[in-house]
Design a protein around this nucleic acid. Structure first.
Lengths: 134, 134
DNA sequence: CAGTATCCAGACGGATACTG
DNA sequence: CAGTATCCGTCTGGATACTG
């Protein structure tokens, strides 16, 4: 329970993120990256259309953007097969595979989703009763 | 390496998310929640202004929004002390504390940030050479 | 202190159509 | 098949000012 009123910045912290895990979050959990990585991680190599079909609600444009970013970050490997019709395959990289423990932790925490749902119901139920100055 | 051309949806998957961890990601890693939760998790109870000072770039409006959402989701507990001047304290809930392993996994993965940076440099270096049809 | 109220710009992402 | 190009609405989040 660290809680001094006088507080000095740790000095090794960039103004942008007060927490060291923020950069990781930006890389791994920016929009659409989670479904893409998850699919690649769980079901192996995929072609473009296969990914489109797995992640039913994604549009080609957004899928491309996501894949490019992941490729750039070294989490996904793109392989182009010069055939007709062209074939491109995406798979998770070795670096990306190191996310496995993280995904495992995520999946494990999902057992708590029920409690979150309940918390929301509770909150919404008692919220209307005055603009809570309590 | 599951990779059939003929593919049928798992049927227990909602159209929205092809992956079961997506809901968790939405709750835990939506904008600004990570810094807030991290600070609360690492440094204990905080008042509003203290959080503002830790997360230097956040505005009061956005901080409030984040805290409200986290409170609603049951990850953060808000305590109002009816004094003058008013005092409000935020702390991570027991449910929120269960995120610890997740944060640990995140923090551990941050050792790979250097590799990501390198991957980006490599990518940007070889990218300009034709619009890569390779 | 602990917020709320407004206003607003810019990024994000969806729909649609087209190409090598 | 594997994308690109374009257009455009939405929503996030920043700046600023004000309040119980």
């Amino acid at each position: 329970m660290t809680n001094d009123t006088a507080w000095a910045p740790p000095a090794d912290v960039t103004p942008e993120q007060a927490c060291p895990i923020a950069p990781v979050v930006d890389i791994v959990f920016s929009r659409w990256t989670t479904p893409i990585l998850w699919v690649l991680h769980e079901f192996g190599r995929h072609r473009f259309v296969e990914l489109e079909r797995r992640i039913t609600t994604i549009t080609p444009k957004v899928l491309t953007e996501g894949l490019r970013r992941l490729e750039r970050d070294g989490l996904v490997v793109r392989t182009y097969h010069p055939e007709v019709p062209p074939r491109v395959e995406y798979e998770i990289s070795e670096l990306g595979r190191r996310l496995a423990p993280l995904f495992a932790a995520l999946a494990e925490w999902s057992v708590n989703l029920g409690e979150v749902e309940q918390a929301r119901l509770d909150y919404d139920a008692r919220k209307p009763i005055s603009s809570r100055r309590t």
